[in-house]
């Protein structure tokens, strides 16, 4: 084979430089690691971590009540206000209460259906049920909140259903918030628990019963410990997602406020970003506390 020197050398040098880089990297795993991590870590740190730290710092600044400009002087006024004023304490307790209630309701509702799907339903009906649970998960968040606005309304279907029994719809308020939030996050709770239950091998359950354990004991001593990470992963969704919500509150909550509403009104109408930042630190602190506790259980790998 005859070679055309000019053309060949060009392509060969191109090829060999790629080769060179490749073999250089091949023997240097640390450089390879650095190259892989460079873009994503830069992105997450530069955009997200910096933004979070900045938010923390902004909470210590203040706003001039006349000009609306932010003063970059350190003060604890915002934090003091958030920690001492009754409004913030009430709303914090209400928000945490709602988030806990929603999480408990979702777990109670999710456990039986997830168990049925994972351990009782036949392959075909299991597949259908997974699809039936997935569908509302993909359906828009707003659609679901809006659907409950229709259901709970005084002219709505709930009123029509319970009126013959002398009852009435709870309407828009705290009960509406809890029902709607529990409804919206339910698929997010069912699916991790279902996956967790599927991983609990049937042979373990049989072994437990062969060794004389009754169903209750098997559930308590075999299923529960194996399922705990999945339950915690599920609760992260419902708890965190409820904690920061203000949209559902506006749609079905009537005049009630959650922490998200206070943050929102301080960013918008009140134009007090430092105070909003101080309020936003409450859910951040709560979530960090929660994540630190559950990190040890290995639940984060289940997300």
């Amino acid at each position: 084979m005859t070679r055309k020197p000019g053309v060949q050398s060009k392509s060969e040098s191109g090829l060999s430089s790629a080769r060179l880089v490749s073999s250089y990297l091949f023997s240097r795993p640390k450089t390879r690691l650095a190259l892989l991590l460079a873009a994503p870590v830069t992105w997450l740190v530069l955009i997200y971590v910096v933004a979070l730290v900045a938010l923390l710092i902004t909470a210590f600044w203040s706003v001039d009540s006349f000009t609306g400009e932010i003063h970059m002087t350190w003060s604890l006024d915002n934090l003091q206000q958030v920690f001492t004023q009754a409004l913030y304490r009430t709303v914090t307790f209400r928000t945490v209460g709602i988030a806990l209630l929603v999480t408990v309701i979702d777990l109670v509702v999710a456990l039986p259906i997830a168990f049925f799907m994972a351990k009782i339903a036949k392959a075909r009906s299991q597949r259908i049920m997974v699809i039936l649970i997935l569908m509302p998960l993909w359906a828009s968040y707003l659609v679901k909140a809006y659907a409950w606005r229709s259901v709970l309304s005084h002219d709505g279907i709930l009123q029509w259903l319970v009126q013959p029994f002398g009852l009435s719809t709870p309407g828009y308020g705290l009960a509406g918030i809890v029902i709607t939030q529990a409804y919206i996050w339910l698929p997010y709770v069912i699916l991790p628990i279902f996956t967790g239950l599927e991983r609990v091998s049937n042979t373990l359950l049989e072994a437990s019963s062969d060794l004389g354990a009754k169903s209750g004991k098997t559930i308590r001593l075999v299923v529960a410990p194996l399922l705990l990470p999945a339950i915690i992963a599920a609760s992260i969704f419902s708890f965190s997602l409820t904690l920061g919500d203000y949209i559902t509150v506006n749609i079905v909550g009537g005049p009630n406020q959650m922490l998200g509403n206070l943050v929102y009104s301080n960013v918008g109408a009140a134009n007090n970003l430092p105070l909003a930042a101080a309020i936003a630190l409450i859910p951040v602190a709560l979530m960090f506390g929660y994540l630190t506790v559950v990190r040890k259980t290995g639940a984060l790998e289940n997300l």
Binding site: P40, Y48, G244, D245, L291
Partner: peptide
């Protein structure tokens, strides 16, 4: 943890942090 954080923290926190940034 860094990868999970933006979804684990409430949306309003991510929202206001990025808005501020």
């Amino acid at each position: 943890l860094l990868v999970i954080l933006p979804i684990a923290l409430p949306g309003i926190v991510t929202g206001i942090a990025l808005n501020n940034a």
